[in-house]
Design a protein around this nucleic acid. Structure first.
Length: 287
DNA sequence: AGGCCTCGTACTCATACGTT
DNA sequence: AACGTATGAGTACGAGGCCT
C-alpha cells in the first residue's frame, strides 16, 4: 500500500495478521454478526461521534443499525437508564439528526399511538426512502442500507455471479458515500474493499480496484470528468473508508501542477485512451 | 535464479479549446 | 489575455510471464 504523507510516499504491505483478520471477517457464515458490529461501531464513532462507552452500551443491548433505524426516543431513555446525562444528551442529538438525515425521523410511542397504523408508515418509509436529489449534495451516510427493495433485488441479480460487466446505471447519480457503499456491496471485490477498509488502510491492489470501480461507474454516466467530480469521489472514499488518504485518489491542481493527479484521474485518462484504442482497433478490424 | 520483454498504472508536460 | 479544463504524448516504474 502506498500512502501520501505530506510529500513523502510511505510504502507498507498488508501483513499476515491483517489478512487473517480479513479472512476471519469475510470467511464464514458467523461473520455476518461481526460485520454488523463493525458497521455499528463505524456509524457510532465516525458519524454520531459517540464515545466507546456508548458503543459498548448499544452492543450490550444487542442493538445493531437495523435497531437504530427503528429505535424510538423512549428507547434512548431506557438505554441510558442510570447513566450520566451528558453522553445521553450527545447521543440523542446526534441520533435524531442522523434519523432526519436518512429520512426516518424519530417517533415516540405516544405520537405513533395517536394515528392509525394501517401499514406502519415509518416501516414503509424505510423501504421507500426519499428519492435522490439529482443535484450533487454529498451527504455522508444518506441512503445507507435504504435502497428500494426492487432495486436492491435487481442489483443483487446482476451482482449474483459477480459479473464484471455490472451496469452501474442501476445506481443513483451523482455518487454519494451511500451510493458508493451500494456499488461496492454489489460485487465480491467491493465487499472485500469494504471489509478491509473497516480494519485499516486498503492495500495497493484494492486501491486500484476501488479506483477502477469508481471510474467504471463514472464512465457509464459521463465521458468527461471535472475537478468537483474528482473531489466528490475522493470525499466519498474517505467518508466511507476513513483510513484512506484522499490524496491517493485525487490531487488537485496547484501552482506546480497543471493537471489533477491521483489514481482516479490517471485511471480515467488511461481508460479513455484504452477505449479509444479499442474503438480504433475495432473499426480497423471491421474494414 | 536471473535477464528480458510486455503490459498496466501513475505521472508530467504540452497543447487546444472554451470561458471570463 | 488569463485562466480553467480536456486531451494526447511521453516517461518511469513495477508486476508477471517467458526463456535461458
Amino acid at each position: 500500500m502506498v500512502e501520501m504523507n505530506g510529500n513523502m510516499l510511505v510504502k507498507c504491505e498488508p501483513n499476515n495478521e491483517e489478512a487473517e483478520l480479513f479472512n476471519s471477517l469475510v470467511g464464514n457464515g458467523d461473520d455476518q454478526l461481526l460485520l454488523q458490529q463493525q458497521e455499528l461501531r463505524f456509524l457510532c464513532l465516525y458519524k454520531l461521534k459517540t464515545s466507546e462507552e456508548t458503543v459498548a452500551l448499544l452492543e450490550a443491548q444487542q442493538i445493531d443499525i437495523e435497531c437504530l433505524r427503528k429505535m424510538r426516543i423512549e428507547d434512548v431513555d431506557v438505554l441510558f437508564d442510570g447513566k450520566p446525562l451528558g453522553p445521553k444528551i450527545l447521543f440523542r442529538e446526534a441520533f435524531l439528526e442522523w434519523r432526519e438525515e436518512i429520512g426516518l425521523p424519530c417517533k415516540s410511542i405516544r405520537s405513533l399511538s395517536c394515528r392509525k397504523r394501517s401499514c406502519d408508515s415509518y416501516e414503509f418509509q424505510a423501504e421507500n426512502p426519499p428519492k435522490h436529489n439529482l443535484q450533487p449534495s454529498p451527504q455522508p451516510w444518506d441512503d445507507f442500507s435504504l435502497q428500494p427493495q426492487t432495486v436492491l433485488q435487481e442489483r443483487e441479480a446482476v451482482a449474483q455471479h459477480d459479473n464484471p460487466a455490472i451496469s452501474y446505471r442501476l445506481f443513483p447519480w451523482p455518487m454519494t458515500p451511500g451510493t458508493l457503499k451500494d456499488v461496492l456491496n454489489s460485487s465480491a471485490i467491493g465487499r472485500s474493499i469494504m471489509a478491509m477498509g473497516c480494519l485499516g488502510g486498503l492495500g495497493k491492489s484494492l486501491q486500484y480496484q476501488l479506483t477502477a470501480i469508481i471510474i467504471d461507474y463514472h464512465m457509464e454516466y459521463e465521458a468527461k470528468i471535472t475537478t468537483p467530480q474528482l473531489e466528490n469521489y475522493a470525499y466519498c472514499i474517505t467518508t466511507l473508508l476513513p483510513h484512506e488518504n484522499a490524496l491517493t485518489y485525487h490531487i488537485p491542481r496547484g501552482p506546480n501542477r497543471r493537471n489533477p493527479g491521483g489514481s482516479l484521474y490517471s485511471r480515467f485518462i488511461n481508460q479513455k485512451i484504452s477505449k479509444k484504442a479499442l474503438a480504433i482497433g475495432n473499426s480497423l478490424a471491421a474494414t
